[in-house]
Design a protein around this nucleic acid. Sequence first.
DNA 1: TGTGAATTAATTTGATATAATACTTATCAT
DNA 2: ATGATAAGTATTATATCAAATTAATTCACA
Lengths: 220, 220
Amino acid sequence: MKISKTLTDIVYLKIRDDIVHAVLKPGSKLKIEPLRKRYDIGSSPIREALSRLCSDGFVAIKGQQGFSVVEMTKSDLIDVTNTRILIENEALKLSIINGNDDWESSVVAAFHRLSKIEHSSADDNNQDLEKYNKIFHDSLVSACNSNTLLKFYNVLYDQHKRYRNLAREANHIKRNLHAEHADIYEAALAKDVKAVCQANENHIRKTEEVVLNFEKDEWL
Amino acid sequence: MKISKTLTDIVYLKIRDDIVHAVLKPGSKLKIEPLRKRYDIGSSPIREALSRLCSDGFVAIKGQQGFSVVEMTKSDLIDVTNTRILIENEALKLSIINGNDDWESSVVAAFHRLSKIEHSSADDNNQDLEKYNKIFHDSLVSACNSNTLLKFYNVLYDQHKRYRNLAREANHIKRNLHAEHADIYEAALAKDVKAVCQANENHIRKTEEVVLNFEKDEWL
DNA sequence: TGTGAATTAATTTGATATAATACTTATCAT
DNA sequence: ATGATAAGTATTATATCAAATTAATTCACA
């Protein structure tokens, strides 16, 4: 059997990525014809990708009035933050309870890899930071044994990432990401559920704290 | 401005309903041509509706091999049950904390309406039971003030309903649904968060209990 | 303001191209 | 000769495109 990604799959990931990185701006209309040109494909794959993104919560649809990027608002940030903490902490808890030695070593490996990137001070390493940050968080919840939690976790991770990208650009507060990750890491290896959840909540709430204190002109 | 539902919207709800009621069987392939005939529309609205259902977790897609109804399995039932309890209990908690008098009276009204149906012993009232059951549960969580939780709640409610329909048909255990609802209702009005969560968990776990004890031939 | 043509854009259809599956036939080792 | 496997062919179904339809929006004019 041949392996083959469909155009819909490809454009789904591209549009999702462009929304998360605010290349496609919150609230902006997603007209089919411009998207066709932008991604150089027909309207069907575009529409199918947008349909999936609707259920994921990145795109809104209004009957007969087309698609648009969902807005970013303070109340949405609060909602996404709280729900992400609920979901991710539950997944962390289960992962610690169920995790075997393979899980543990995958966490060790991911933390080590991420730490290296965090300490390197190259200017163009944001791509890598994003990538290995996700791999680290993925490894932590990977033993939770719940497809539903993992699905919600992935959606909320990227929804939250939209706000994180805002916070990073503004970059008021000096943030020690490595220390935050180390807190989670230590507690996870110690299998201390309560401490992991606390560290993870602190980590997630940092973004909320920064972005909620934005001045008007820093907000979109 | 005119109000107008798109064909995609309509067929999305129909297919979702047919999956929840096992008219479209778990694991079965969802070929476009038969669905076209069944719902009497073109392929695009069908494919867009199926794309949304993918992200909702009712439909699976494999690149170049089309759509299919997601399987029902014991491990999925356990997963959906646990996650639904997590989400719905959180929503209940927030609803009780935030709920004002309007919320309270909407709960009273919904409970009263549901009770009437539960006590009537007409044979063809399953449609109505489903409807007012949902309205009652909706009213309980309606003041939670979290769109994300409500979205997840709605998805999990229907995913769980697939199993509930199995349980209802088999109907081994005599189940006093009214008493279960009354427990939730009393605790909600008393604003007793802990009791509401316990009553809601009991309610949800009844289905799990029944279905997990099925013999092989009762399972799909 | 309100009404109605003109324009733009969304939705839907039907047709085409491409990939997966089923089926047939041919090949080879035992 | 027989059974297993591979290669090629026919069939079916998916994914995609492009055109047609229908609804929403804009704009001119009353």
